[in-house]
Structures are given as structure tokens and as C-alpha cells.
Amino acid sequence: MSLSPPSRRQGRARPRAGSPVWLFDLDNTLHHASHAIFPAINAAMTRYIVDALSMATAQADELRLRYVRRYGATLLGLARHHPIDPHDFLRSVHTFPDLPAMVRGERGLARLIATLPGRKIILTNAPERYARAVLAQLGIERLFERVIAIEHMRRRGAWHAKPDLAMLRRVLREARVPLGDAILVEDTRSHLKRYRRLGIGTVWIVGHLPRAARTQESRGRMAGTGRPHYVDRRIRSLKSLKRGHGAGRKWNRSKSGTRN
């Protein structure tokens, strides 16, 4: 996968204050990563751990999963407990010569995103170069004012990732996003659960989840709603975002539930 350096767009007009700011996760939210990309990333991470730490494959795979559960991203555990180069790790496990054949998005995705009111930002635990490559392949990179990737979540030399609360407050403050205007669209339910504490809007997208994960993620729903109490909307397709959302603070004030 040959990528150009990340670009910075200048002069984009920003919507007025109080309009929604959509925080989109990338993988399994804007495209079907479970189809090919997630299996490839997981296999590449396990191989990297095998080579870097001289582990057996089964042991490396268990370590990968343990760090995801504990820290939210395998990288954070590796960076904290092992002498690896985080940038080399990110580059190695997110490089795909056949990326165009691996990316699957919804039909009419660019139109769906473009017609949503307000600002749009990517918030992903993936590296920026990979995120921009996927967005370019989907034909939607120009629709987002910025990409907040895992490199931008670092602070004072320490790596952070979703669902870290202090990290989200900081990156949104730097992006001038009021918490009351933010709406997170995300496939990982635990991220939504944690971030709802900040009072942001939460949209759980399940259409790209594997069947086993969808069954596991469905636990804890409110009776008759198909969603947990900390999820404002549960959707299968991004097409559903065009229905039912008001703007920014007005929509957030009308959410069910209260801040914790």
C-alpha cells in the first residue's frame, strides 16, 4: 500500500456553533472491516509479536487479545510492557498491498455522509496513514475536516486510545468540539458505554459486526428497544442516521438517560 503523507485542509467553512459534530469510528463503522481487513490485521499483529518477543503463535495471540481487553488496543500493552517500536508496529500491521480489494463500504456512502448536518471527524484507534487510505478508497476522505488517529491520542510520550476519557476530552478540546455537540458513531459498545459518561450522543452501528460478536454485544439491551441504556440509537446501516437526529445541543438535551 503506497500512501502519500497526510494532508491538511485549510479554509473549510465550519458550521455554526451548536450544530452536531459527528465523531465517526472507522473500522466496522464506515466500512466492513470484519470481511477481510480485521482478520489480516489480527494475523499481522500475532506474527509481529511472535517475531518481536520470540513467542509461540498461540501465546502471542493470547497476549494480543489480553491487551485489547485491558487497554483498548494491543499497541498500548506492547508499548507499556515490551521494548517495541510503536510506529514500526503500526506500520507493519496496517500495510496492505491489496487494500482496494479488501475495503467494502455501503452503497451511496459518500452521499449519506455529505448530507448529514454539521461537522464530521474521524476518531479511530488505527494509524492515520491507514485511516486516510481507507477513506480515500471509500471516496469520502474530503468529507471529514480531520482524522484523529492513535498517533494524535499520545500525551507526554504515553500512548492512549479509545475508550480513554481524558484523551477524548483533550482531543475534542483541541478540535474545538463542545461535548454537548458531539455524537459518536461506533461499533464497539464498550466505547459508547464509557463515553456516554461525558454526556455525548451515542450511536451503536451493528451491521458490520460478525454474527458471534453481534450476539454477544446484544446483551444488556433495554426491553423493547434493541439497545443498551447508554446507547441513544442502535442502527444497522448509516442510512438510518438521516432519520431521527436533530441538531447538536437540542438533540443531546432530548436524549434518554442522564450523565453519570
Rank of each mutant, 00 (worst) to 15 (best):
L3C: 08
S4Y: 03
S4V: 03
P6N: 01
R8E: 13
R8Y: 07
R9G: 07
Q10L: 11
W22I: 03
F24Q: 05
N28K: 02
S34Q: 09
H35Q: 12
P39N: 05
N42W: 07
T46D: 14
Y48Q: 02
D51K: 01
A52S: 15
L53F: 03
L53C: 06
A58M: 06
A58K: 12
Q59Y: 01
R70Y: 06
G72M: 05
L75R: 02
G77I: 00
H81N: 08
I84W: 01
P86M: 08
D88N: 08
F89I: 01
F89K: 01
L90C: 13
V93D: 08
G105V: 04
A110Q: 07
R111I: 02
L112S: 10
R119A: 08
I122W: 06
L123D: 05
T124F: 10
T124G: 08
A126R: 04
A126V: 08
Y130R: 10
R132L: 15
L135R: 07
R142T: 11
R142V: 03
E145K: 04
R146E: 14
V147C: 11
V147N: 02
E151I: 10
R154I: 00
H160K: 07
E174K: 07
R176E: 13
R189Y: 01
R189T: 07
S190M: 09
R196N: 05
G201S: 04
V203Q: 09
V206P: 00
P210I: 08
A213S: 09
R214L: 15
T215D: 14
R219K: 14
R219T: 10
R227C: 04
D232A: 05
R233P: 08
R233E: 11
R234M: 13
I235E: 06
K239G: 14
S240G: 12
K250D: 12
K250H: 11
S254A: 15
S254E: 14
S254P: 03
K255W: 11
K255M: 13
S256Q: 14
S256T: 13
T258F: 09
R259Q: 09
N260P: 13
